[in-house]
Amino acid sequence: MNLFLEALAWIFAPEQWSGAASIGTAVGVHLAYTAVSVVIAALIAVPLGWLIGHTGRGREIAVVISGAARAVPSFGLLILLVLLFGVLNRPEASVVTFVLLAIPSILAGAYAGVEAVDRAVRDSGRAMGMTEWQVLWRIEVPLGLPLLVAGLRSATLQVVATVTIAAYVALGGLGQYIIAGIPLRRYDMVLGGALLIIALALLLDLLFAVLQRVAVPRGLRAGRAARDTRRTTSAPTAPPTTDRTPVPS
């Protein structure tokens, strides 16, 4: 308990919020690496996932690649790419690492969202004269958006956690407090850095949870609400009980 209080005292100390090595700067660096990596991964994975989900081709390959990428240890991949790119190109190596880790979740969310659309709905669009592009963009993408946001949510949380190790190659972020505090035995700093990373991850998770809810089309939300209302009103009620206790004579 004392260590927890010391960590909170370290976080809210005025000197931690001023200067080039302030917590605000570290949060900005952490968010910058996360945002850049997720955006690049989305630009690669979302169109590919939509194509796989719409055509049904290459799904097995995508599943295998996604599973293999998730099994790669992030720390080992970061060190390998830093050695391959060179010490002077550490930011580029780190971003490539984070992008490779974010792609599987986004790819899975993109093609799973399109695949989950009812075939009858697609056929109805084609019967109305829609082209394949219109079916994809007007039917499959809006209906599959919640699963895509779920994939982005999972990828973002994974990248936020992984950006922590970027401090090991001197790239800053919130992980620098953990890396610097361990050899100094500043456990208040170590725990404080961990708490900041947890708080940032929870905040981003909450944001994506709201976006995932908003991404559900209004028609589907109205349909679900109507079904829930019908279930509530049609639920059987227990018959009234009568007291049949005999009255003593």
Rank of each mutant, 00 (worst) to 15 (best):
I197R: 01
A102D: 02
P104H: 06
E92S: 11
T245D: 09
L191H: 04
I179Y: 07
L78W: 01
A199K: 11
I178L: 11
L31K: 09
D228W: 13
P239I: 14
R138G: 01
V159I: 06
I61R: 08
L100S: 05
R186G: 00
A26G: 09
M189D: 02
L203R: 05
G129N: 07
L204W: 12
L80Q: 08
A42E: 02
M130N: 01
G172N: 13
T233F: 13
L203F: 15
A194S: 11
T229Y: 13
G24E: 12
S22W: 03
A9C: 06
L143H: 09
R218G: 13
A35G: 10
A127G: 13
W10T: 03
S234F: 10
Y168Q: 15
L211S: 05
L211K: 03
I61L: 15
A209D: 12
V38A: 06
E15M: 04
S94I: 08
E132M: 01
W50T: 08
P91V: 07
E60C: 00
I79T: 10
G24Q: 12
R230H: 11
V46Y: 02
P142Q: 13
A110K: 08
G86N: 08
T156I: 04
T55A: 03
G181L: 05
F4A: 14
I178R: 00
A222I: 07
V29G: 01
L51F: 14
R57T: 13
R138H: 15
A68Y: 00
F208M: 05
W133Y: 05
V135C: 14
R244D: 14
P246I: 00
V149K: 02
A161Y: 06
W137Y: 05
L220V: 13
A161R: 08
L143T: 02
W17Q: 07
Y111N: 02
P236Q: 08
S22K: 12
F4W: 15
T233P: 00
R90Y: 02
L171N: 09
L101E: 02
Y33R: 05
G28D: 09
Y111I: 09
T164Y: 01
V114W: 02
I61F: 15
R244S: 10
E92Y: 08
T233G: 13
I23T: 05
S37V: 12
A32M: 10
V87W: 01
L83H: 11
V169G: 12
A110F: 09
A222F: 09
S124A: 15
Y177D: 07
R90S: 15
L143Y: 04
A110C: 15
T241L: 06
G144F: 05
E60D: 10
T237A: 12
T229N: 13
A209P: 01
I178G: 02
P104G: 04
L143R: 13
V64E: 07
L174S: 10
L206I: 00
E15G: 01
V135W: 04
A26E: 12
L43R: 00
A215Y: 11
G86V: 14
P14D: 10
V27Q: 09
L3Y: 14
S22Q: 04
L5H: 15
R213I: 08
L202A: 10
V82L: 14
A170M: 12
V39E: 03
F75P: 09
N89I: 00
R244A: 12
A102R: 05
E140Y: 09
A235L: 06
S37Q: 08
